[in-house]
Amino acid sequence: MRARLGFLGVNAALALLAALTLFPLAWMISASLMAPGEANNYPPPLLPTSATLENYRVLFAEHGLVRQVFNSLLISLFATLLSLAFNLSAGYAFAKLRFWGRERIFRLLLGALVIPAQITMMPLFFMLKRMGLVNTTPGVLVPWLASVVGIYLVREYARSIPDELLEAARMDGAGEGRIFLKVVLPLLKPIMVTLAVLAFMLSWNDFMWPLVVLTDREMQTLPVALATLSREHVQDVELMMAGAVITVLPVLLIFFALQRYYMQGLLAGSVKG
């Protein structure tokens, strides 16, 4: 009897928690399909009386949101590629190659994690302005070049590569670049996927830096454009919900497809400190 109660309690609590958690997202989708003005009623409707894609049409046709979808995709793809290029090589070197001050430099990098990145925003803005990079795609990408967490993730993973393998390759006369490309990278594939998923999602969801550095609407990313739109269209709930769905959909799809890699990155990355 007692076991039965426990079973019911645990599962009811879980189901309730999951329902509460999913509800806002479900409502977002539902409201995005409502006719304009429909959501502002009492009692508030849960489902559209007749679902319509009109809001999506308005967003793309009248507000030209295609442009921002494109911007976001471009920026996140570049951020992913840059993150891979910079962090894979550095993480591997920190794990497997010997050079002067390796441990000391790495400790310094970890120590820098306590400094919130927002401190750099104002000087960085001024620097980029001097370089003519404000309001450009390279300007938004600057923070994604290399990251301490990224280097850390790769380093942790790369440490499991047996030294004998690298030595054997060196014996065969392979250069370091060739070893990295032909021997190391294939072994790093899982962490590459993790890193790519993390970089794509984080850069897609990033808000403050794009808000600061992309001043022109034509250059904005989806989250920033959504913020701007929602200030102009406070009353158009259904339209904003359509915008919200478009904004979250890509990250959610990637997450569902590559969840395993994402979780591994999360667990490995959080053990820092």
Partner: peptide, 23 residues
């Protein structure tokens, strides 16, 4: 002509930002 609409409450801020950002 390309028109950029700004919400009026943010327009001043955005123009200053555009100035600061060479845009």
């Amino acid at each position: 002509v390309r028109v950029e609409q700004l919400p009026f409450t943010a327009a001043h801020e955005k123009l200053l930002t555009a100035y600061a950002g060479d845009a």
